[in-house]
Nucleic acid binder design. Structure first.
Lengths: 206, 206
DNA sequence: TTTAACATACCATACGGTCGGTATGTGTCA
DNA sequence: TGACACATACCGACCGTATGGTATGTTAAA
């Protein structure tokens, strides 16, 4: 009679569901504390499906970091902060945007690859490298605007666009750490206000 | 005959040795990935000793965070950056000092309670709170110098000494995350250069 | 002789991972 | 069009080990 197979969810997207579960659960509990069974339960798949798609838990870690890189790249590419014609305005809009999306539950606005890197940097080099690709790939997208703003306005100073882009990321990541420790998202926003002020100082704007 | 007991290390300091092992191993592997057996092995004690001193692994986490708070308080209290009579000079000396001690292996200069908080913030509130006490207790020590520097020099601005002290901590923590992701301590130092520049800007010094 | 500070053996469970099997889609050729 | 071959996606029972934790015994200082 029933043409449906038991109650199984749509076939063919187990991998995606596992990656989404990993993204959400690892941000809340950390990588080591997240078991394969946790992920299977959340994704509503079996262990067989897990190890069909990923050779090991570590391999899932790498895939999750890569998945994060892809989805965040899409997200930031589509974000509105690219609109202003003035490159400095775009940089400041980026900072404002990063502040604006710090909302709701801590596990939902914090950075998967920052958490992941901090946890496995010395244990699992492949995961660490995937995290590095995601983080520094993202900073690179900001670097172009910073460099354009700098030559645009003839700003000198003993700093590089590359290092300022990385510093921006450091402030964001550090804000997440404080927000987690203090259990208050406002702590992350606060640091972005200081970053905004710093950048305006560097470019002599008020 | 022999009055010594086998080859057992001095009796009475198992707790301290376990806390030191926790400090070192958790910074390298993370809390969840560090097993009780790992700690016992590193501290050269048995499981009996572990559970004699700590009711559970989580309880050790709290104790390790408290231990970190104590030892870092002592360390920073004794540090030379308090010497300058000018409060702003002390603040800048603090930043320089934080930069100067970023040396050697990543696991040896990074922050236990930052790592710990990021990992267990939602799973183990008691550990998270112990981490918060350590971090924000430390920022409070910087706050006094910032406030003194500010009133000293009549600096206005829409920021508070408290928030700048926290921002300083965010930059440090974020630098650690980048250093771990990129496997390069220089990434942590780099952000402290930006922080130094920012503070000089705020206080109109060059 | 009491008590803190261990040591040792042990336990139940949770963990990552394996394996034989089944369901479903897909290309091919008569 | 249909039958067959094959590949992919998934299932779920099972395995060996590592884990946090316990129960009981021993040592040595006060």
């Amino acid at each position: 009679m029933s043409r449906r197979t038991k109650q199984s969810p749509e076939r063919g997207n187990a991998r995606l569901r596992l990656l989404e579960a990993a993204r959400d659960i690892i941000r809340a509990k950390g990588f080591a504390a997240t078991s394969v069974d946790d992920l299977c339960r959340a994704a509503d798949v079996t262990k067989g499906a897990f190890f069909h798609h990923f050779a090991s838990k570590d391999a899932l870690g790498v895939a999750a970091a890569d998945f994060w890189a892809e989805t965040t790249t899409d997200f930031f590419t589509a974000a509105p902060y690219h609109a202003p014609p003035d490159p400095l305005a775009r940089v400041l809009a980026y900072v404002a945007f990063r502040k604006a999306i710090i909302l709701g539950e801590i596990a939902q606005f914090t950075c998967l690859v920052g958490t992941l890197a901090q946890e496995v940097y010395s244990s699992t080099p492949e995961v660490r490298e995937a995290c590095a690709r995601s983080i520094f790939g993202h900073t690179a997208t900001l670097e172009a605007d910073i460099e354009a703003a700098r030559s645009d306005r003839g700003i000198a100073g003993d700093w590089t666009a590359e290092s300022l882009a990385r510093h921006t990321q450091a402030v964001i990541q550090g804000g997440f750490v404080l927000a987690k420790a203090g259990n208050d998202p406002a702590l992350a926003r606060e640091s972005l206000d200081h970053l905004d002020r710093y950048i305006r100082h560097l470019f002599h704007v008020t």
